[in-house]
Amino acid sequence: MPLATTEDILEDLAFFDDWEERYKYIIDLGKGLPAMSERLHTPERLVKGCQSSVWIDVGRDDDLLLFLVDSDAFIVRGLLALVMAAYSGKTAAEIVAFDISSYFQQLDLERHLSPTRGNGLKAIVARIQTIAKAVVAAA
């Protein structure tokens, strides 16, 4: 199953008007993320300082950056799926150009990006942006 695009997600979420449906949808998106093998749950891939554990693995396919992410919490996995829709399988230049704050604002989920949430989302976004900027700078 191809990953949902940011447009798909924005469109789907606009359709729901109660929080339960919204979060059920987000949880389901998380369940649909490609599985990360337990073998990849290593300290280098772990994002520190989160209540739940969050891992990220980075790969390349020519110009495209591929990310594999995982979390032991359902909501966080769902939020990671939203981030993956924006970032995974994109070029470094596309990642750098993408306005993630605006995307989360449109999703009405910007409070999850707050550094005080401690859910690892902010840290994952920062890590992906750092990687993409380094790739752009090296090109």
Partner: peptide
């Protein structure tokens, strides 16, 4: 089913404040 962080978040959405972690 569910990490304490999930439980805490979904309870908060219903007005119930607990601590997780």
């Amino acid at each position: 089913e569910g990490h304490p962080a999930d439980v805490g978040f979904l309870l908060d959405r219903q007005g119930v404040a607990i601590r997780t972690g």
